[in-house]
Simulated scan of single mutants.
Amino acid sequence: MSVRISTVALLMAALAGCNSPVTENRHSGDAQRQARQALGQQLYFDVNLSRNRSQSCATCHNPQQGFVDDRDNGVGGAVSLGDDGHSLGDRTAPTAAYASFSPPFHRNADGAWVGGQFWDGREPGLAGQAGGPPTNPVEMGLTDKAMAVARLQENPSYVKQFKELYGEQIFANVEQAYRAMAQSIAAFEKTELFAPFDSKYDRYLRGEYKMTEQEELGRTLFFSQQFTNCNQCHQLKATPRAPGETFSNYQYHNIGVPVNAAVRARNGVPLDQVDHGLLNNPQVDDPTQDGKFKVPTLRNVAVTGPYMHNGVFKDLRTVVLFYDKYNSRSAERQINPETGQSWGQPEVPYTLSLKELEDGPALDDRRVDALVAFLKTLTDRRYEPLLEQQQAAN
């Protein structure tokens, strides 16, 4: 997938300092960091790091689309198409935006699993995540790390930069060279481009934006334990008005998401094959964690659908209604508006986070719409035109 000129211009403007020679920066630490970011930027968009030279990190984490995969792929964008042109994943590609704020995978004081990368936290940090897709056979498809390192050495500029940053002998060891590649991509993903904190919500906190009546109602509902339970899982900071909120506590829950039958029909995974979520993480050996997935950030959520770990829901309003089904006795709320049928059975029914799911009253349509309106205010400024496009399409 080629990079559009506007994306390149955006990146170059945001990271202008990254391409300055090391000698031009008085602080060697800053220069080193910026040089790694600049290298990571190049790697992030390099299709040569896939087997058929057709995909880059940006293919499935497109900076123009909230760092998600905006290709339809025959399944409404629910999962990503591999470099081989036919393989389809079984989980949706989560946004790379704000991913750097997920803490390393660990257990907190209460014994709950927290953080990590991927839906199951199997990589502790960004570098581990960046190193996964290139050698995944259903993603970028390189046969092994040695193939990736060989591709890097095809590029004289890479060879020069790698040696300057990681030592003259960096390519003598495949593992070290591959790790350096992943670390460089991770450095780029920690830049402000991925986490600008400039949404209407951020501007509201700074007194630069006045919320509409509907947005303000949604904000009140979101942060109120009396009316919803949203912030039980989607608030990290101690207070609702704290700046830098990422809208995830990075813990793991089973919320009863059904199988995405349309995806399974296309990718060949049997309908009865269970995605065990957190239990697939090799660090976790506890049946009570079966079917749990990491709470995602809600930053840019209005422009990064489809939703849930398998992309089963297309519309953000549908997601709010899905949660409401646990508290509403209305027959209407037990129907998925996208299918006209019941929501479907949870893929893993016996570890549902019912304490969190059932802790709140039922929502009427006015409050559902208000929550959706508030969630739209979490959209970074550069993606606000995508919201306008959605509104025009509807």
Rank of each mutant, 00 (worst) to 15 (best):
G77E: 02
F227N: 14
D69Q: 00
W119N: 06
N231M: 14
M12E: 15
T239S: 14
S353H: 13
L126F: 10
A112I: 02
K314G: 08
P103V: 08
N300T: 00
G66T: 00
A16E: 13
A302L: 05
G76H: 06
R51E: 12
N25V: 13
P346F: 09
T135S: 09
P94M: 10
G268D: 07
G89N: 06
W113D: 07
S2M: 10
R26H: 09
E332I: 14
A127H: 06
P133F: 14
L271D: 15
V274M: 06
A112R: 12
S87C: 01
G85R: 02
S353Y: 15
E358R: 15
N336D: 15
N136F: 10
A186S: 05
V8A: 14
T92L: 13
G340A: 09
G311W: 09
N310I: 05
P287T: 11
Q34I: 06
G115V: 00
A331Y: 14
A16G: 12
Q55C: 06
Y307T: 05
T351G: 04
Y201N: 11
T92R: 15
T23P: 01
N19C: 11
L165Q: 12
S102K: 05
H276T: 01
A16N: 11
V372D: 02
G125W: 13
Q391H: 10
N281H: 07
Y383I: 01
Q225T: 09
A177Y: 09
L15A: 11
C233N: 04
A195L: 01
V284F: 12
P137A: 11
A302N: 04
V284L: 13
G85Q: 04
A177W: 08
G66K: 01
A331C: 07
S102L: 07
R317M: 11
I335L: 14
P282T: 01
Y209W: 12
Q226S: 13
Y166R: 01
Y209S: 09
A35T: 00
G218F: 06
H309Q: 12
T377Y: 06
V159T: 08
M181D: 03
H61A: 03
A238T: 03
E168V: 04
I5T: 12
F313H: 03
E168K: 09
G40K: 01
G74D: 05
T59A: 12
A195V: 00
S54T: 06
L126R: 04
R51W: 11
K292I: 02
R122W: 03
T7I: 09
A9T: 05
D144A: 07
Q251W: 10
E384W: 12
G132N: 13
N48R: 13
A16F: 14
